[in-house]
């Protein structure tokens, strides 16, 4: 029997088994067993309210969302023109831009993060150059604070945005742009009134993907951030590894998972690839 004739569930089975075995089961087991330590459902609810409305968690959630939002915005602002250049480039220029975007993608996050630390440190390359040029009097604090976290995360997340936007931009029929020009539109109008609306679903997809990934970040903020830049994933790790407070970790995991799933639902509603445009 040809593969295409098999029922869909059978074709999905390997992926589903993997997903269940290495993701759903462990996380379910972790959540259930952690929360059971607390006792009855009423106890769990009480503890949950106490943890989720505590100042620490509140601040961390605020941090996480704030960093996620700033990083996503920066990634979009940098990614949109880069994707545009990529969608227009041919031959060698195309390969070069693509390589610059994708090569880091295949490098481990830790390696990339350490590379940034070398550049951004007090005696790092950037401070050395700026001092050498006499542009600054004292080294800038680019590392172990919010600036460092944002720079590092923006860099790591850029490829996701660029590749998502590239797909959307490549799908725009160039004849539509030419038609707009022929009907009297200036280059700015062609962009604002035709190109941008037609790539908006790519922006929505890119923003959601970037934000979803950003709020779960662990390595970059842990290495490049300061004590004020704790994100939720770091807090979960600390509860599990240091304080061994699994129930609290479980609750924070639920929060992160819930936010991610909600955003993913939005994503699959509005940013289905190949849909071509936002449904009204």
């Amino acid at each position: 029997m040809p593969l295409g004739r098999l029922p869909a569930w059978l074709l999905l089975a390997p992926a589903l088994v993997l997903l269940f075995g290495v993701f759903l089961m462990p996380i379910g087991w972790f959540l259930v067993s952690s929360l059971r330590e607390l006792g009855t459902l009423a106890d769990i609810r009480e503890e949950m309210e106490a943890v989720l409305f505590s100042d620490t968690i509140g601040r961390v959630i605020l941090n996480t969302n704030g960093i996620g939002a700033v990083v996503t915005l920066l990634v979009l602002l940098i990614g949109y023109p880069v994707s545009y250049a990529l969608s227009r480039a041919r031959g060698f220029a195309f390969t070069l831009i693509l390589l610059c975007i994708v090569l880091p993608y295949f490098t481990s996050t830790i390696v990339r993060t350490y590379a940034w630390m070398v550049l951004l440190g007090r005696n790092g390359l950037i401070n050395q150059v700026l001092l050498g040029l006499g542009l600054i009097g004292a080294p800038l604090d680019l590392l172990y604070n919010r600036t460092g976290v944002v720079i590092g995360m923006t860099y790591v997340l850029l490829p996701y945005m660029v590749l998502t936007l590239y797909a959307a931009m490549k799908a725009v029929d160039p004849r539509l742009l030419q038609a707009a020009e022929g009907m009297g539109a200036s280059p700015g109008q062609v962009f604002r009134r035709v190109f941008m609306p037609l790539t908006l679903h790519g922006v929505v997809a890119g923003v959601l993907i970037t934000f979803i990934l950003a709020i779960g970040f662990f390595i970059t903020p842990a290495l490049m951030g300061g004590p004020a830049d704790i994100m939720i994933a770091m807090l979960i790790e600390r509860e599990v590894e240091l304080t061994q407070n699994w129930p609290t970790a479980a609750m924070m995991t639920i929060v992160l998972l819930a936010v991610t799933l909600i955003l993913y639902a939005v994503y699959s509603r509005y940013a289905e690839p190949g849909q071509g445009e936002l449904q009204r």
């Binding site: 029929d173 004849r175 539509l176 038609a179 707009a180 022929g182 035709v194 037609l198 071509g276 445009e277």
Partner: peptide
């Protein structure tokens, strides 16, 4: 235009 080039949005 040959393909009409009607803006889908």
């Amino acid at each position: 235009f040959q393909n009409y080039a009607i803006f889908p949005h």
